[in-house]
Nucleic acid binder design. Structure first.
Lengths: 224, 224
DNA sequence: CCCCAATTTAACTCTCCAGTACAAAATCCT
DNA sequence: AGGATTTTGTACTGGAGAGTTAAATTGGGG
């Protein structure tokens, strides 16, 4: 879908053969899918190769080994998802509305990017060893907190938010609810049924989550 | 710590040699530790054996293969944790206090049983395939919901809780916040620092979590 | 005390799979 | 064109680790 061998229009970046950048991307997408599906050690390089337009040999050509490939795949997964988040425009909204929109957006966004969630789950299983080494990923996460900090500041200036709201805590809350919804769906629905994960259930949960987070930042007297 | 080879006081259950039940338990504990630490496929049977008083061959003697051992380890992990929960007595408390206590307890309990959390994480990475097959585990989870349902009923009878509170949703909320706190600590602290996971931070988070959950069940007019 | 069934030990096999050796294209440079 | 360099295909290797073979040990019942 991405590359056509007929007339490469603007590709051929690094002054060399057929668009190496596109090949890298192709491999990374396949790798994300495989790692997200199976986990780091269960993932098979041969299976990643099979999902690719290219071969196993090429994977080792572009990325040195499985671990390196995993690092790049993790980075790519973060980049893609955070990029989507950065597109959100909240400045024109009141602090309450901005926060509500951010929470609802995050809930949906996580739901729409299960592969990303699963990469993070896997990273947590591995004690975040890879993530801890990647400065690139750490930089990608600064804007999330900044966005929340701006909302907090405005909300406090308006006298509506509690004075002790903490952007990091807020992010923890939003993440916890939105992340768990995707990460623990398998066990939760195996134990308690999957009604909550059908459309109606999810809509209700999103509502709940938005309310919970908003309630936690309001001063008591201002609660709607 | 559990077994002494000096005078087996009441052991020797199955009418045969040195307490096979104790050996099983020994293996299961080692297995839980190893699986929780490394994940299903990264875990090494040899390493489990090394943590045991017995040998690798014995593991295959008592449990047929790695997968079977994993199943039993998962079951044991659930049994242990749910048993701790069942000890909670809530009937003598008002619905609000009961719920608050249950939430705070769950938050702490999860925090104190990281191996259990990690087993569940791993199970989710594997799409809960093993959990889905275990009726034993599914039964273990009924009391949690029943306990919540009882609290909801009482709260509604008192006219304090909303009429549409749902025990399953409530459990989802409590679990999400308490689970994520343990499961995602590695990535979260790699990205945003580990202040939230130090004692003070955790105490504050627990407070927050209790408030959030309570707020979500109160009728608006009754919110404290 | 001797046999049998229940355990246990140690050494072994066999498969899977990450990673590689090697050489054949393909592309660019002059 | 022809040599240098980069890209790709094929077939292979080496090691790790799940699971096994087969013999030794133990305790109990007769």
């Amino acid at each position: 879908m991405n590359i056509e061998n007929a007339d490469p229009p603007s590709g051929r970046k690094s002054g060399w053969k057929q668009n190496p950048e596109a090949v890298r991307q192709d491999i990374l997408h396949a790798a994300i899918a495989e790692f997200a599906e199976k986990g780091l050690s269960t993932a098979r390089v041969d299976d990643i190769a099979a999902k690719t337009k290219t071969s196993k040999r090429m994977i080792y050509y572009y990325f040195d080994d499985k671990q390196t490939l995993y690092e790049h795949a993790l980075e790519a997964a973060y980049a893609q998802v955070r990029q989507g988040e950065n597109a959100l425009q909240l400045d024109h909204l009141s602090p309450q509305d901005a926060l509500a929109k951010l929470v609802a957006f995050t809930f949906d966004h996580h739901r729409n990017h299960p592969d990303f969630i699963r990469m993070v789950m896997i990273e947590n299983v591995h004690h975040a060893e890879t993530l801890a080494k990647s400065e690139a990923i750490q930089k990608l996460n600064i804007p999330v907190i900044e966005k929340l900090a701006a909302i907090c500041t405005r909300g406090q200036a308006d006298g509506i938010f509690r004075t002790d709201v903490d952007p990091t805590v807020l992010h923890w809350q939003i993440s916890a609810l939105s992340f768990f919804n995707v990460s623990n769906r398998p066990t939760f629905s195996a134990l308690f049924g999957d009604q909550l994960f059908a459309e109606a259930g999810q809509a209700a949960l999103r509502e709940q989550v938005v309310h919970m987070v908003l309630a936690s930042v309001y001063k008591s007297k201002d609660r709607p």
